[in-house]
Each structure stands twice: as C-alpha cells, then as structure tokens.
C-alpha cells in the first residue's frame, strides 16, 4: 500500500483512514499534483471537511458551488472558479486533499 507522510492511501490517492488527515498531508498531496495551496484552496478544503462532518457525505459539485457562493461571495460560487483551484475537479481533487472519501456518484 502507498502512503503519504505515513498515512495509508488507496490506488487513487484517497486516505484510507479519514482520521489520519493533517494539514501537512494536504500540502503534500497538493505538491504531488503540482499545486501550492493558497488561502482560497484552504477555504474550500475546510468547507468540505465541515460539510462532511455535518452530513457524512462529500457534497455534489452543484451543491458545493452553491454553498461556496453563499459563504465566500457570489463571484466564487461557480465551477469555473472551483476548477481553477482544483483542475482535476473540486469534488475529486478537493475531497482528496481534504482527506475525505471520493464523493458519492463521482466517477
């Protein structure tokens, strides 16, 4: 099994144990995708973690964009903005950095 900073990840790079997550792991995962995490990235990552804590699922992209717009301003509530942060998809890549499982229904 592969690992990131000692935390086990699956074949797609998602954490196996959600409890293993640390900010350092997120930074390391991003580095692997050649992304340097900005404050905007962290806003989304922390939002995803909060959403998962509350609802036990990762939000669908449609739900995520709406919620981000509501919380961080209309100009950020669109998939173009979110994809600019997470080119591999705010759901898939964002959730991976946030230490969450792959979103339900995400292929």
């Amino acid at each position: 099994m592969a690992d990131i900073l000692g935390a086990e990840v699956d074949e797609e790079g998602f954490l196996v144990n959600l409890g293993d997550w640390t900010e350092e792991i997120a930074v390391e995962m991003a580095k692997g995708d050649e992304i340097e995490l900005s404050e905007e990235h962290w806003d989304v990552i922390n939002f995803l973690r909060g959403y998962f804590e509350e609802y036990q699922i990762a939000p669908a992209v449609r739900v995520l964009t709406k919620a981000i717009g509501k919380q961080f301003g209309k100009e950020k509530g669109n998939s173009k903005y979110l994809y600019s942060l997470f080119p591999y998809g705010p759901g898939k890549q964002g959730c991976r950095f946030a230490g969450l499982p792959k979103p339900t229904g995400c292929i």
């Binding site: 509350e54 609802y55 036990q56 699922i57 669908a60 739900v63 709406k66 919620a67």
Partner: peptide
C-alpha cells in the same frame, strides 16, 4: 458504523 442519518439533512441541498 457510519451514522448516515445525518445525511438526510443534506437532502434539501439536493
């Protein structure tokens, strides 16, 4: 086991 009753609260968003 996962307490997925919390997930029902998300249905409104969907």
């Amino acid at each position: 086991m996962k307490n997925f009753s919390k997930t029902f609260h998300a249905l409104g968003d969907y």
